[in-house]
Amino acid sequence: MSAFVSSPLFRRISKVPPSYYLLAALLVILFVARPQMLNANVLGVFVRQVVPLGILVLGQLLVMRVKSIDLSGGGIILLINYCISSGIFPGASLGFYVALALATGLAIGLFNGLMVAKRRVSAVIVTLALSIVLVGFVQYLSSGKPPGDVPKIFGELFNTRFIGLPSPVLFWIALTALMALLLSQTVFGRFVAAVGESMPAAHFSGVPVERTVILAHTLAGLMAALAALVQTASIAVGSVRVGLDLPILSVAATILGGVVFGRGEGGVWGPFFGVLCFAFLFVVMTMFGVGDAGKLVAQGLIILLAAIFYGLRAGK
C-alpha cells in the first residue's frame, strides 16, 4: 500500500479530484446501459434535482477550506420550507420570502461562525446541535404533520427554462462561478487559503483569522438559505423531512471534489462535479434496482474512500 501511495503514478492520479473520474465512469455506464437518456432534456431534469445540494456544497466547501464544517443546512432548509409552506405569513410576496430566507440563513450562519471562531466550539457539535434544535422547533410548530402548500410562484419559477437549460441549473452555475471568482480573485480568497494552510501563520501574517472563519460560516448560512428556496420550489409542498440528508451529502460531494479540511486543490468546480456525480449515481443505482438503503451505503462508502484517498496522500 505505502509503495503504491508514494509511487509517481498515485501522485499524478491524486492531483485530479476523484469527482472527475467518477463522473466520467458514471457517464460511460449511462451511455452503455441507457444511451437514450443522454440527451439535454433528460439530463437537465436529473441535474435540476441536485441543484439544492449543489448550492449547499458552495457553502460547505468554503467552511471546509478553513478547517470547519457546517451540518446545520438540514435544519435551515426545514425551517425555511416551513415558513413558506405553513401559511404563517398569509399573502406574503415572493420578495418577502426571499428576504426572510436570506435573513434566516445569515443569522444562523453568523451564529455558527461566532460559536466556532469566538467560542472555539467544535464545529461538528455546534452545527449538528443547532440542526437538531431547528428540526425539533419545526416539528413542534407543525406537531409533526406536513404543513400546507408552497405558493404557486415558486413552482412556476422552478420550471422555467433559459437558452434550453432549466433556470435552477443556470442559477446554480452562476452561483458557482461567483464563488469561484470570490475565492480566486479577492483578498478574502487569499485569507481562506492562508487560514486553511496554517492558522498561526495566518494570524502572524496579519490575516483576521476569526473574522475569516465567521464570514465563511455566514456565507455558508446564506447558501443554505438559497438551497432551501430552490428545494422548497422543487417539491412544491411543505414537509417535515425535507433536506435532512443534504448536509452530509454536501460533505461527501465536497470531499469527492478534492476539497478537504484546510485544503482546496479541487477549487470550486471539483465539488461542482462531485454534486453531478451524485445526480448520476442515484440515476444509475435506481437503474440497477438499488433502493434507498443501498444509496445510503454508497454515500457512506464514497465519503470514506475519498477521505482515505486524501488521508493517505497527506500522510506521505
Binding site: T186, V187, E197, A201, G206
Partner: peptide, 21 residues
C-alpha cells in the same frame, strides 16, 4: 504554499477582504 504566496501574505492582509487581490 509557494514562496510567492508566503511573501505576499502580509500584503494581502493589509487590504480589505472583499477587494480584488
Amino acid at each position: 504554499h509557494s514562496v510567492g504566496q508566503n511573501i505576499v501574505a502580509a500584503l494581502h492582509a493589509g487590504r480589505p477582504a472583499l477587494k480584488a487581490a
